[in-house]
Amino acid sequence: MLTDQQIRELEETARHLRVEVLKMLHTSQSGHTGGSLSAIDVMTVLYFQRMRHNPSNPAWEDRDRFVLSKGHAAPALYACLAGCDYFPRDDLKTLRRLGSHLQGHPDMNKTPGVEVCTGSLGQGISQAVGLAMAARLASRPSRVYTLLGDGEVQEGQVWEAAMSAAHYGLGNLCAIVDQNGLQIDGATEEVMNVGPLGPKFLAFNWHVLEVDGHDIQAISRAFDEAEAVTDRPTAIIARTVKGKGVSFFEHKASYHGVAPSDDELERALQALALH
C-alpha cells in the first residue's frame, strides 16, 4: 500500500513526465503523443517506485528489466529515464534528430537504460520472455516488466510469447497491456477486435489482473500481487485513456502519431499545470 504522500508524489512525477513528453514531441515535431501519455502512469510507478534499478550503473546484473514492447511510446520511456538521471534532461530536446541517442524507437545500443531494441510490434514481449528465462537460469532476483499496446496484441507473436511464458512458468515476468482502445486507424475493436484480453491471457494460464491504468495506488497494488504469484507470469490489463492528461488529446486516434503544434503545446501545458 502506498501512503497518500507517496501517491501525491508519484502523481506529481507523472504530471512532470507528461510535460516532458509534450515538450520533446513539440520540439521534434514527430513522434507518438497519444500512446505515450496513456502509458505514463504505469511507467511512473515502475520507474519511480517499483523497479530495482541503478541509473548510475545501468548494467547492474540484478536489476529489474523494463521492455517497452510498444516501442513507439519511446518519448514516455525517455522521459522516465531522464527523470531517473540515466542521462541529462537536456538530451530530450534531441529526440529523433540525426546523431541523437534518442532514436524514434528505443535502441539499447544508444540510450543508457534501454534494455532491448523495440518498435516492431509484438517483438518486445518475446525478448522479455527471454530475459526472464535468462534471469532464472542465472539465479538472479530480477523481475522483467513489459508494456504492450492493445493494438499490438493483434500481432500473432504476442500470443506465441504468451504461450511460452506460461509454458515455462515465468513467475518473474509481468506484462502490462496499455488498453487505451485506439490504434492509428481507429478504435481497436473496429480495426480488429481481439475481444476481451483478460480471458485470453487467463486461457494461456497467466495470472490476470485488470486495473485503472491511471490510478497510482491500483497500479502499485497490481504489481504487489504480480510479484506474489511466482509460478506463472502475470498480465495486467490497464484500462487507460489515449492522450491522458490533456483533454483535447484524449480518446483521439488522430493523435496517435502526431506531435503537438505551438498552440496545442501551450494549451496542454496550461492544462497540466492546472491539475
Binding site: 518475446s126 520472455v129 528465462m133 535468462a134
Partner: peptide
C-alpha cells in the same frame, strides 16, 4: 513458433546467455 523463438533467443542474449 519461430518468431517467438527468435525473440526469446534475443532476450536470452540480452540477459547474458
Amino acid at each position: 513458433a519461430e518468431a517467438n523463438m527468435t525473440g526469446m533467443a534475443a532476450g536470452l542474449a540480452a540477459g547474458g546467455m
